[in-house]
Amino acid sequence: MSAGAMNPYITEELRALADMARRFATERVAPGFLARDQNRVLDRDVMREMGAMGLIAPELPEEFGGLGMSRLAAGVIHEEIARADLSISYINLLASLNGQILAAHGVPGVVAPWLRKLVAGEVLVAIALTEPRGGSDAANLRLRVERVGDDYVLNGEKTSISAADQADAAVVFGRTGSVDSGAHGVSALLVPMDLPGITRARFDCHGQRAIGRGSIFFENVRVPVNHRLGDENKGFVQVMQGFDFSRALIGLQVLAVARAALEETWDYVAGREAFGKPLSAFQGVSHPLADFDTQVAAARLLCLQTLWLKDQHLPHSAEAAMCKWWGPKLAYDVVHQCLLCFGHGGYDRGVMEQRLRDVLGFQIGDGTAQIMKTIIARARAGREAVPA
């Protein structure tokens, strides 16, 4: 069954787009899934092919190389790539997140060339927010950004950055205001990664190894003032609003992995016999899978609804936070259960155990469950009732 079958949010056009993306993912992305985990290198050829087919950030305006499509279009593509390889789907995630930031807040003459290359699959742009002293307290940044003439000078470190050592540029958040100014003293900059004074290091992570994570070090790095994104001292407040979009995409991303695992596991337990019956005849096997199938279907609808709300310019911050905390936890629990159904074969190095390692990372990065639940609580009870 295709990704859009019997779904109120998926039109015939989006269903056709999802089918096209799935064919590409099956033929070009899935075959290298295990190998990329071993060599820890993102496949740039696949990335350029994705760009040539319009599979990267199709929601961006045509003036920036996009197709002017809906956020739902980005979502259905995203989940089809993710079901083949979660690390490769980071290309879509980073392009959509950073693409909208650059398009909405950048100087057109500066960001337009980057956006066209981004959509074409020719460059990868990271998001550099987290610092060594903490990730969840994102407004309490220490990377210094000082104005010197027509440049900003950057000094400090970003850490646990996806694609840190592979990105061609990064959206970097740093402190232009006083230390005690909190979120209102943070600015965002588009920083090419080949500038003098930038060094990078890569971690040896548990999962998502093709995209990787690492640190970026800035030592007297000079960036032109016209590379600022949004107003000075307002980068966090302005630019972070775009994270609602990426949170919904992350939900679809990990749930696509869970859906693929469930499909394979249902086939396996229906065909594998024990004590003269299919494994699926035993309720201890089939009922947990039925429970998870139900939850995955509901969670996916929530993610699609969130993207629909964004397309309609309606409030969706609480829904996006729900997608971000529920999706990764549910996906991990689903893949874990599926792995157990395969027994020792699931525990061996292979597709199922790699999926388990890959989805786990999203319970840590891009906003923890606790932060997401605080966002939801504030939306329901009011910010005054749920202070920081």
Rank of each mutant, 00 (worst) to 15 (best):
G185I: 00
T130S: 15
G174L: 06
I161D: 11
G214D: 00
R133F: 14
G182D: 06
V225P: 00
S181M: 14
I216P: 00
L154Q: 01
P224Q: 12
R175C: 02
L190W: 06
G177Y: 03
D180K: 08
K234D: 12
A138K: 08
D194K: 08
V153N: 04
L190I: 04
P224A: 08
H206C: 06
N140P: 00
I198E: 09
Q166I: 13
D168E: 09
R228C: 07
V223Y: 01
T176G: 12
N233Y: 07
F173I: 09
R142T: 14
G197Q: 10
K158G: 11
D194Y: 09
D204K: 13
V179W: 12
D168P: 04
R200E: 15
V148Q: 14
H184E: 11
T159C: 14
L229H: 08
F173Q: 07
G207Q: 05
A164R: 04
P224R: 03
A210C: 10
F218N: 09
R133K: 14
G182H: 07
A126Y: 03
G134E: 12
Q208A: 10
S215F: 03
K234E: 15
D151R: 10
K158I: 09
V123G: 05
D231E: 13
R200H: 04
L190H: 02
G197D: 10
G212Q: 03
P132E: 09
C205G: 11
A170D: 08
S160I: 13
S178I: 06
G197I: 03
R175T: 04
D204Y: 06
V186W: 02
S187W: 02
F203P: 01
F217T: 11
T159S: 15
L190S: 07
Q208V: 11
Q208F: 10
A170H: 03
T130H: 14
A128T: 06
G235K: 07
R200D: 05
A201N: 08
M193R: 05
H184R: 08
I161N: 07
G197L: 04
N155Q: 03
E146Q: 15
V221L: 05
F203A: 09
S162E: 11
A167H: 02
A164V: 09
A201P: 01
F173S: 00
P132A: 05
Y152G: 03
V237E: 05
L141G: 06
G197E: 04
L229V: 04
S181H: 10
D151F: 08
L129E: 02
V237L: 11
V179H: 12
A138R: 11
G177F: 06
V221H: 01
D168M: 11
L143F: 15
I161P: 01
V148A: 15
L143D: 02
V237F: 03
V145S: 10
D194N: 15
V171Y: 01
G185D: 06
N155G: 13
I216E: 00
G135V: 11
L229I: 10
E131Q: 14
H206F: 14
T159P: 01
L229Y: 01
V225C: 06
G207H: 00
A163E: 11
D204S: 14
F236D: 06
G182N: 09
L229C: 00
A188C: 15
N155S: 14
R147Q: 12
V225F: 02
V172D: 02
F203V: 05
I211K: 01
R228F: 04
A170P: 04
L124I: 09
A210F: 08
D204R: 12
N220H: 15
L229F: 08
G185V: 01
R228N: 01
T130L: 11
L195T: 12
